[in-house]
Design a protein around this nucleic acid. Sequence first.
DNA 1: TTGAAAGCGCTAACAT
DNA 2: ATGTTAGCGCTTTCAA
Lengths: 380, 380
Amino acid sequence: MPGDRRPTLSDVAARAGVSKSLVSLVMRDEPGAGPETRRRVLDAAAELGYQPDSRARLLRSGRSRLLGVVFGIQHAFHADLVTDLYTAARETGYELALSAVTPHRAEPEAITGLLQDRCEALILLGPQSPVASLARLAERLPVVAVARGVRSPAIDVVRNADADGLRRAVDHLVELGHRRIAHIDGGRAPGAADRRSGYRDAMRRHALGEGEGEWRGEGERRGQAERRGEGNPRGEGTRGGRGRRGGGDGIRIVRGGLTEEDGAAAARALLEDLPTAITVFNDRCATGVLDVLAREGLKVPGDVSVVGYDDSHLARLAHVDLTTIAQDTAMMSRLAVGRAVARVEGEPVQQREQVVAPHLVVRGTTGPVRAGRPRPRSRR
Amino acid sequence: MPGDRRPTLSDVAARAGVSKSLVSLVMRDEPGAGPETRRRVLDAAAELGYQPDSRARLLRSGRSRLLGVVFGIQHAFHADLVTDLYTAARETGYELALSAVTPHRAEPEAITGLLQDRCEALILLGPQSPVASLARLAERLPVVAVARGVRSPAIDVVRNADADGLRRAVDHLVELGHRRIAHIDGGRAPGAADRRSGYRDAMRRHALGEGEGEWRGEGERRGQAERRGEGNPRGEGTRGGRGRRGGGDGIRIVRGGLTEEDGAAAARALLEDLPTAITVFNDRCATGVLDVLAREGLKVPGDVSVVGYDDSHLARLAHVDLTTIAQDTAMMSRLAVGRAVARVEGEPVQQREQVVAPHLVVRGTTGPVRAGRPRPRSRR
DNA sequence: TTGAAAGCGCTAACAT
DNA sequence: ATGTTAGCGCTTTCAA
């Protein structure tokens, strides 16, 4: 019952009739113990239900072999990354210490916890802290930012080529014959600026770039500041912008966001003058778009094609079956863990930033462009 | 830079010109140090960027003040719980240690990690392990199971009154005039059996209970075994059952599951003979139902009313706006943490099982029953 | 191959 | 109010 003291190394040693040192060796699978001794020790440990105390172990050895991971508990994409991070870490002999960012637990708090646990490096998923404070953090221990480009020489970055991803989405749609292609963006979310420019570049490359209009309902101009992605990417300023176009092809960017709701709002804004294809900031947002389209009685991909981003679980669901741009989370996780370990072990490092190529996953929401204008069946 | 040794208590003591004990006291905010000393120590600590080493601290004090939390990283509902668990823990002076279950990291592994961290109690969200192994675990330390009823005297349980929840859903629909009410269940997921019986009971109480038919496509009969909720609740046996009814009111249960996909499949099965209202195992599954209904051109709640379960983020999204049964995650989290702490501190405990009442949250997917039969616009 | 002893950074008990 | 000492459970010398 919970009340007996837990067995320690000494208990095992006593029971096996050997010294603590031997038990220590055996438990860590180090060479230096005879086979017979090894067996006796293992038996004793099993009988006592001995579990090594990681705290004492790490205290003494001076290192924790712990990689701290900060993630947003509400982010499906972070969940995918964490899953792969566990796998990647297992191969390196380091353990993961998880610390969640929640609506009531901000990033600094999540980080502090990990520092007290003496993590040897930090892997931050989509970090929201200002670059300056991340840089300060990096003075204390290696910091790897994943899925957000951080412009600081002190911080390693693993991200996917966002611009490239959107280029692939547009290329795919153009191949299918689409010319009226809109983009629902991610506002100030990490990666959103790059995805916007990827969309813009691709449109121009296909000679669909003329006639770009205002895209923010508030009439606010896009500035440099937003490229830095500072501030909270969620929950503010995501009201759907009004896409104003007089017809013809052209770049058309509507303010979206990270959530289903953002996507739904943006989709409603597009209904006035529907394009034949929509590229969306991420899968979650695309789900909201699909939902609105369905309620309007529009066929996907018959009337409108939709491309998401992330290849999250959502996209793979049979009834969603979303064509999307996949981020290679397994690769990104391996790189993040690898880099963290390299820094901890003082290995030389080439490039501070590692960019992973995304790839297109064609599913059921994209198809050839149709003749004639789709009409929404009704307004909700 | 990462390379200088981190400052220790002794460093701070030396810098402040006092003993380690004083620093220790000050850092823990314990009484016993003069105000002047306190200030000097705090300054020194700040200048050095000192962070206490939780491992050493806990090693020495003989306890970890750590509550281990095992959660499924893909479960949105678990994310809500973890969010609230952090909040609840903060008030008790205990810290949370998170350990995720992923597709490549099973529950036993997640638990082992926490044991090595010397957690003083374990809070398991929707544990999947067999009761026997949970009971064995409970011999070593207090174990609290959340959101799954575990029938073992050794384990504390915090769950919501699932049957009651479904009763509320049915009552609500009946008040709106519905009589043809179906239930899409959660298969063998934790809580699914209770929700089924809640649905059944409520239907009978409203004299809508006659005429229950087969509900599993496989022709399999419901047995006692499934009530125990053993085995993997995900991914198997979730093919949509065929609801066979000849018209008239009655109990109608269709096999669903936990995911959007399960809901979509079940909804398609219902299309043949559409009820006026559907109660669904959970919000995620209900989302799949809504999706299929929208694609069929059916109005919600005009043609069909839908009630979910969980009041997860999904349900709250403006464009989903799902009427649902809310589990009080804040309360459940408080109870779970409270119980874990009580066990750790040896306080006497009344009931092993704490059941939280769910409540109805009326949103936009339920409305008065309509005259006439809805017709699906088309088959997908 | 094995064992004895020191000490990781901290807290608790006991001085002063 | 402050300092001294011992020792948590383990790993790491170092010696046998």
